[in-house]
Every structure is written in C-alpha cells, then in structure tokens.
Amino acid sequence: MGASRFESSVYEHRLRAAAAAAAQAGLSGLIITPGYDLRYLVGSRAQTFERLTALVIPAVGAPTLVVPRLELASLRESAVVELGITVEDWVDGEDPYDLVVAALGGGSVATAVTDSMPALHLLPLADRLGRSPVLATEVLRSLRMVKDPAEIDALRKAGAAIDRVHALVPQLLVPGRTEAEVAADIEAAILAEGHSEAAFIIVGSGPHGADPHHEHSDRELRAGDVVVVDIGGPYDPGYNSDSTRTYSLGEPSAEVAQHYSVLQRAQKVAVDAVRPGVTAEQVDAAARDVLAEAGLAEYFVHRTGHGIGLSVHEEPYIVAGNDLPLRPGMAFSVEPGIYFPGQWGARIEDIVIVTEDGAESVNTRPHDLIVVPLPN
C-alpha cells in the first residue's frame, strides 16, 4: 500500500463493481466528478475547478477519464495510469461534455452523476445528454457502505492512532488551562500519531459538554469539571478515525457517576447488539432503551451513530427509522450521549466493524469515566 492510496487491484475491483451496479440499476453509466466517490473508485484526490474533470464508467465497456490537459499531472498520485484507463484530455475552447457523452457510448438511457457534481457542470451535461441525470448515490452507497479488507485495515490503523492520542489526554486536562489550549495540544498529537490532519476537535468542559457540537473555547478548565473529548481525522490513505471519551477533573459527584454508569451500559448494549441481519434502527433502540429505563431518554438528543470511511459521516446511519439490515464489513460509530443543559454532558464513542457474527471495535481505550487526579 502506498502512502496516499491502495494497490491498483483494489480500485480495479471497485470499478468493475460500480459498472455492474450501474447495469443492474438500468443505467447507461456513471459520471463521477472530484470528491469522495472519485477517490474511492481510482484513488484520486483531484479537486473541482471550473474546467471539467470526470470519470465516466459505462455500464458496458471500459471507463474513460475526461480531464483538462493542464490537470494531467494530478493523475500521477491516482491509480488511473496503472489501471490503463483511457484518458481524454482537453484544452480551453474544446467541449468536454461532448467527450463525456461519447465515453458513455450514446443511448437515451438514464445516466447517474455523483452527488457532489457542481451545478456548473451538471447543467451543461444535462443539456448534452438531453435529459436530467439521476444521482449515483443509490448505486454507490451499497459499494461504499461495505468496506473491503484494505479499508478495514485502514480503519483499524486510524482507530489505533486516535486511541494513542486519547491515552495522552489526561495529562493535558489541567485546571486553569483553556479548552483551546488543550485542543491545540491534541491537534499536535493527532498529527504526530500519523493523521494527515485533525478533522475536528471537541473539548467540552463543564456546561460546554452539554452541547454535542461544541468545539473549544477560551473557557478555563476547573476542578470538578466533566470534559467531553471527541477527536478524529483522516489517516492515510484517507480513512477517518472518530472516538469520544469523557474525563472528570477529580472524583465525580455521585449523580455524575450514576448517570455515566447508565451511559456506559447503553453503549455496551448497543455494541453487543451489532451483528449481520440486525437493522440500524435496532442498534439505535438498544442504546436508547437503556437510557429510557433510567429516565434519561430526553437527555440523549442525537442518533446513535454514523457510517465512516473516506468521509467522517457517511452511510449507514444508526438512527430510528433506518430499517437497513447490517452486513459484514459495514463500519460505523456507536456513540450514545447524555446532555444536561447548563451543567455537563458525556459521550462514549467507538468505531465498530460488522463481522460475520458480531462487531469488532477499532477503539480499545477504557470506556469508564476517566478520573484525572487534581494537582496537589
């Protein structure tokens, strides 16, 4: 495996699967512009500009990459050359949309485009096709939701790296330091542990812990604070970590300890519920039911989890109403939380991968409320 992408054989398999899925859906093909779908299919981190770059995957026939000549150098990092994909380059004054239509092989059957395609390209493309394309989301979601062995290995490495960061967090949580100062140290640790960037850092101390999407502020940590630390980011070749642990500066009150023990049980019950055939909403209900039995249902204000991979948030979503049966290889967070406005909050989050008979967690740090001793 290279530093920025997988071996070419991984992408070769994905391209074949995408073409087969397009054919099964009755489409003439897929048109993929830069974004996570393009990165998934050929390992390209190309960006979207006013000049069109598009991977055309016909349902029948070989794929073609339409790319501006001045962007040809961007192909070097991808698997395009090794895979022998036909490259149709174009220069200003030529019409790239005609090249896309030709690469599809003609016909009047519906074509699907990636959901990140800018309107700047979608509208002229629809004009050339003579009809509005449909979204490729439904075709690609079934592929991207089920991780292959290379992706699972990448998620394990990302999980281990963010676990090493969480192991350092207690020494950073010192009364008098601000959330922002702690976050800066965490960012440095995330990069030092091999991530390409810190995608998000939540340091929610005291009442800020009751805001699930708080980031960090100039609030100073205080003795007695409960602190939610939710961190993650991409780890080459671009698969994300995401893990939350909750810390207490000094021994927690009896009430905090009691409520947290219920949360810990809810998270464990939800992870234990994960196995093939169980639906996403059943995992959500497993966590929610434990909290409801303890009278804490109203304090759990978000879904139990989200899929993860090249995107921090992707399908499957572990939420009420999602009757999608789980399949081996699906990867998602299990992260129930409790939030008491103006007081404190707590969340426990692991990334799990569905196995043939249960779930494997890529995060192995303790789930207990982590008590940070106060300085003498």
Rank of each mutant, 00 (worst) to 15 (best):
N363W: 00
I31C: 11
S205W: 01
G26D: 10
R51H: 13
I338D: 06
L122S: 07
E181D: 13
R131P: 05
P96F: 02
Y97L: 04
K268T: 15
P328W: 08
V352I: 14
A285T: 11
T33E: 01
V10S: 07
P63D: 09
L172M: 15
Y239P: 00
A21V: 03
D37L: 00
V165F: 06
A266I: 04
G345I: 05
I57S: 02
P336F: 03
R76F: 13
A223G: 11
D350V: 01
L104T: 01
S142P: 02
L221D: 01
G305S: 07
V227Y: 05
I162H: 04
E82V: 09
Y239W: 13
M330E: 09
E88D: 15
Y97S: 00
E71K: 14
D127S: 15
A273P: 01
L41S: 01
T86F: 08
V174D: 00
A254L: 14
P276G: 11
L143I: 06
D148H: 04
G238K: 06
R347S: 14
D148Q: 11
V362M: 04
A158L: 07
G93F: 10
H13I: 12
A160M: 09
S205C: 11
E179R: 05
I152G: 04
Q267N: 15
G206R: 04
F49R: 14
E251M: 11
P133I: 03
T48Q: 12
Y40T: 08
S248N: 07
A270L: 00
G305R: 02
A285H: 09
N363G: 09
D225M: 00
E349F: 07
R219Q: 15
K147N: 03
T53K: 01
A73Q: 14
R347I: 07
D242M: 06
I201N: 00
V109I: 12
Y299M: 10
V87R: 04
D211L: 12
A180M: 10
Q267R: 13
F6L: 10
Y36C: 04
Q171A: 15
E360W: 11
P276R: 08
D148C: 02
A17V: 02
D289F: 07
A46E: 05
A292W: 01
A183Q: 03
I318P: 01
G29M: 04
E314V: 05
L104Y: 03
L52W: 01
L99F: 03
L135I: 09
E138N: 13
Q282D: 13
G159K: 05
Y97W: 11
T33W: 00
T53M: 09
T137E: 10
V66F: 02
Y36M: 08
L72A: 13
E197K: 15
V319N: 00
A126Q: 06
S248Y: 05
E7F: 10
Q24D: 14
G61Q: 06
D272S: 13
E360T: 08
V182G: 01
P373I: 04
H306K: 13
P170Y: 11
T244Y: 04
P373N: 09
V169M: 03
V109P: 07
A112Q: 03
